[in-house]
Nucleic acid binder design. Structure first.
Lengths: 182, 182
DNA sequence: ATAGTTAGTGATTGAGCAATAACTTTCTCT
DNA sequence: AGAGAAAGTTATTGCTCAATCACTAACTAT
């Protein structure tokens, strides 16, 4: 297998492992195991653990953008909004690793920032902004709509992280299409 | 100093340290240093590291509730909403440790849940729900208003975690009173 | 065929860290 | 005064983990 293909597998494995264990709580060993490769070899593919996390985080943002893009294809305004909300709901249910990776990424960015590591944050802000721009465009360049949509998304991530079960009162203020299946 | 007083200091120190380093990324040593006490003594005050984190997380939620309660005193509806938004803004600026602790808590809860640790999540859901109920009551028991208010709060936490500076476009869809100072 | 490159491994190192055990100091109450 | 409790310490253990080093196997192009 080519190094490039391995890197791809590694990123995927990293998303899963980091999502479940967090940055510090995940060993490079566990990622290597999931890839099916020796732990030291990961360090041939990525210069260090942080670079691997960054790649996983960026992948996660790109995937989310992809979900929105596919859901909103050919739609606009209110229709696009509901389609994206519904798609994100399914996405979160089908691949819980993805939104958990998001949460781990927000937490890790804050830590990196405290450590004086600016590049980490910059890369992730850029990725997040691309998502923002996508949504903004789809929602007719309406800033308020964009903000509200993303706000609901973040609250959903939070409630899901905390493990509030589907059907709990805290979900009752969501569009039906944005609630977990009840 | 009495054990109870020390415990109080420890919780405060834990909020700061965990907020900046995350759960796994923070050593009990660093917390002990901040308290001004030896590392092993922390284990007299708390059974283990997780219990200390839990206490810090619960404190953080209680503090946030307090901010909302004080801001909305004597107000209701729209007025209360804006007062709370403004107060939360100041709070996040004055004490960034607090919202960062929130993010660390969401990330850590997801990890605990994966590890099959149910009690951790239960305690934090209970704390979060108390906050939800408070806001709900103040906003005239309007579920949609409550959800929207908290959604904006969560988006604000996220953007702040990512380090988007005041004045950035991503903040432009917020109530003026909920934006970081520009 | 063989030189060079690319993919991959095993062994190790050095640091950091939660938790325990065994001990000491400082109050406090009669 | 002095016994008991409460507050606090030093030393240590046993583990985990990122990263490096030195090495091997397989492919590829002349």
């Amino acid at each position: 297998m080519s190094a490039e293909e391995r890197r791809e597998s590694a990123v995927r494995a990293a998303v899963t492992e980091f999502a479940r264990g967090g940055y510090k709580g995940t060993s490079t060993e566990s990622i290597a195991r999931r890839v099916g490769v020796s732990q030291p070899y990961l360090f041939r593919l990525f210069p260090n653990k942080q670079a691997l996390f960054l790649a996983a985080a960026e992948r996660c943002l790109e995937d989310t953008r992809g979900v929105f893009a596919r859901a909103s294809e050919g739609l606009e305004g209110e229709e696009a909004l509901h389609a994206m909300a519904a798609a994100y709901q399914r996405y979160v249910i089908d691949e819980p690793d993805m939104f958990q990776m998001q949460m781990q990424m927000y937490a890790a960015t804050a830590v990196a920032e405290v450590d004086g590591d600016t590049e980490f944050g910059e890369r992730l802000r850029a990725g997040w902004l691309r998502m923002w721009e996508d949504v903004h465009l789809v929602l007719g360049a309406d800033v308020d709509e964009t903000t509200t949509f993303l706000a609901y998304g973040m609250l959903a991530n939070t409630l899901a992280s905390l493990g509030f079960p589907a059907g709990h009162r805290v979900w009752s203020g969501f569009y039906l299409s944005a609630r977990p299946v009840s």
